[in-house]
């Protein structure tokens, strides 16, 4: 496409030929590339702007402290917000031990056997399973077989399974940053693996693991499809009283409002989206801050 094609023999005016660049092609291509990057980003900025404009009238204290309502103007997201907070807490409770534990097992314990190869393959496979299918698993396993009902705990368990592949991957990456020499130093001091892990490996990779956990949770906070499948409610006019309570969550509330034809509810959806995005940004911010702080503590 752009390769120069001079005749094989050197041109008569070789000095002049040397000076002719092919920069025009390259400049055009660079512009095209920049456009390709700018287009989606601009789209997002414009859409984000319209979103905020649409949401603005609804964003106020009462929006966060009210229950949903048939009247868009007085509806709020209190149950959704509380539901999301509880859901995330429970999900973290289930997912962190499993995810970090599996990562530690794979990095520190598993020898290269068929079993560990199977585990690897399995994690790759799980990462590619659409989230709605985790919802079907949760619906059968947690809601029906374990009879947890359409409850907070069933929702959290489902989200925890969904998070596992990502958590395992980020935790393994963090574990791999701990140099092998330090493990050897521990072993040479007569430590077993458990002590090596607790005293040296885990303290060292903690910033990475924590950051990974928070980033994973910030992904989970926006997950909608599996919660819909296990039957989170779109209209909840009460706060959850126990782990077995029916619940709603922010993304479910958003979906519920988006699905209504009235424009006033669209504005509510926009406002709820702004809240959700702010929560996500906060979590990301905390993750970055934590990583910086903990890293400083280690090297300082």
């Amino acid at each position: 496409m752009t390769t120069p094609h001079p005749s094989v023999a050197p041109p008569a005016d070789s000095a002049g030929w040397l000076r002719t660049g092919h920069t025009r092609h390259e400049a055009a291509f660079r512009a095209l590339c920049k456009l390709a990057i700018a287009l989606p980003l601009c789209l997002l900025v414009v859409l984000g702007g319209s979103l905020v404009v649409e949401a603005w009238p609804r964003l106020g204290a009462s929006f966060v402290t009210s229950y949903p309502s048939r009247f868009a103007e007085s509806a709020g997201i209190l149950p959704a917000l509380v539901g999301t907070a509880l859901l995330m807490g429970l999900t973290a409770l289930f997912a962190i031990p499993l995810g970090v534990g599996a990562a530690v097992y794979l990095e520190e314990y598993a020898q290269k056997t068929r079993w560990s190869a199977l585990l690897e393959l399995n994690i790759t496979t799980l990462a590619g399973v659409p989230s709605i299918l985790y919802g079907l698993l949760g619906l059968e396993l947690f809601v029906r077989v374990m009879d947890l009902g359409r409850s907070l705990v069933a929702g959290a368990a489902t989200l925890a399974l969904l998070l596992l592949p990502m958590l395992i991957t980020v935790s393994r990456e963090a574990l791999r940053t701990v140099p092998r020499e330090l493990r050897e130093a521990c072993f040479a001091l007569g430590a077993d693996r458990a002590a090596t892990l607790r005293r040296v490996v885990l303290p060292m990779c903690m910033p990475g693991v924590l950051t990974g956990i928070i980033l994973s949770l910030s992904r989970a906070i926006g997950e909608t499809a599996p919660l819909i499948t296990i039957g989170a409610l779109g209209y909840v006019a009460f706060l959850p009283t126990s782990l077995g309570s029916a619940f709603t969550a922010l993304p479910i509330q958003i979906f519920n409002w988006v699905s209504r034809p009235q424009a006033a509810f669209r504005a509510n959806a926009a406002a709820a989206i702004v809240v959700l995005l702010v929560l996500m940004l906060l979590m990301n911010g905390v993750a970055l801050w934590l990583r910086k702080r903990l890293q400083k503590r280690i090297t300082g």
Binding site: L182, A188, L189, R199
Partner: peptide
């Protein structure tokens, strides 16, 4: 019983000097 010192110095970076010395005892 058979201690070892490696080619590259490898103190534990998360521990203080004091804790590094005590690391062997604590690890055990």
């Amino acid at each position: 019983l058979v201690g070892m010192v490696f080619q590259k110095p490898n103190p534990f970076p998360t521990m203080s000097i004091r804790d590094n010395v005590l690391a062997g005892l604590r690890l055990n």
